[in-house]
Design a binder for these strands. Structure first.
Lengths: 146, 146
DNA sequence: AAAAAAGTTGACTAAGTCAGTTGGCAATTA
DNA sequence: TAATTGCCAACTGACTTAGTCAACTTTTTT
């Protein structure tokens, strides 16, 4: 049930990039310093986010990274899936990366106890992370109780 | 956000042991066959659950394992914590194994965005898993929507 | 044009975790 | 005492995590 450092650093970097959105670009080392992230590791993460279309970058002396999608249109769930893979605790309850379980004794049954409860867990996680945007995140919008 | 095989196998084994509760003991290979779990790996798991006080065992020719706590008194959350560690995605939001984050830039701040959202996630997970008992699980009680 | 700054890429690595396997020992029963 | 079963520790191979390093390309400044 753990969040990797990759996702943690990625999300923290996106706080900075969201705050700079439409205002300025940020260089790797600026983000790294502000968020205490190893700069070389951060780069890998920023490149993934770039390939996924969240960021643009410029090289050269006035280079840097910037967010190119509106921060209210990106959810934390999307970011975590890019960096860590599916949110679901087991593949057979994933909506974005479903895989049927191979040697589960309930595979041919109508209902598997584990699948049932883990389905609930995955929905609970996704309900939060897929409704929380980068804008909410960076500007500290409090999420109302559910 | 993944559940390990250890926890998956442990929970599935506990289905069998719950169904046998107060009726009979089960041997390692019986559980292994019914739930398609490698018997030697299963043993490690059963021993952990024994050390944690859930199971009793007898050696010798009529040996086996049995559940010694009422299945309605044990939650899936407890079991998963025994086998996988804390439910929380990051240590600084764990209730059972809290650790303050060391080099987070918000460490001395009143509010950390990541801590806030991950706290919600950990509560959502725990709300499900800490209210779902082995009895519910083994006998397929459907959990009402929330 | 050359130098410098920055991003890009791929390879590499040390440490740790996961999912088991193996083998010897201890207790129980027949 | 022999067979059976659980108990325990060590071990293994594959994989993941969290980085690091070196070489290279592009862009900008001088």
């Amino acid at each position: 049930m753990k969040l990797s450092k990759k996702s943690e650093y990625g999300l923290r970097a996106l706080i900075e990039l969201t705050l700079a959105y439409n205002r300025t670009t940020l260089q790797r080392h600026e983000i790294a310093e502000r968020q205490h992230i190893p700069a070389e590791f951060l780069e890998q993460i920023l490149l993934v986010l770039k390939r996924m279309g969240l960021l643009a970058s410029r090289r050269g002396i006035k280079g840097g990274y910037q967010l190119i999608k509106p921060p209210e249109s990106i959810t934390l769930g999307q970011v975590i899936r890019m960096l860590d893979g599916p949110l679901a605790p087991i593949p057979c309850v994933s909506k974005t990366a479903y895989q049927k379980c191979s040697d589960c004794p309930y595979a041919s049954t109508t209902s598997c106890p584990l699948q049932h409860v883990m389905g609930n867990v995955r929905n609970a996680i996704a309900d939060i992370l897929d409704h929380y945007t980068l804008k909410d995140f960076a500007y500290g919008r409090l999420q109302e109780e559910r």
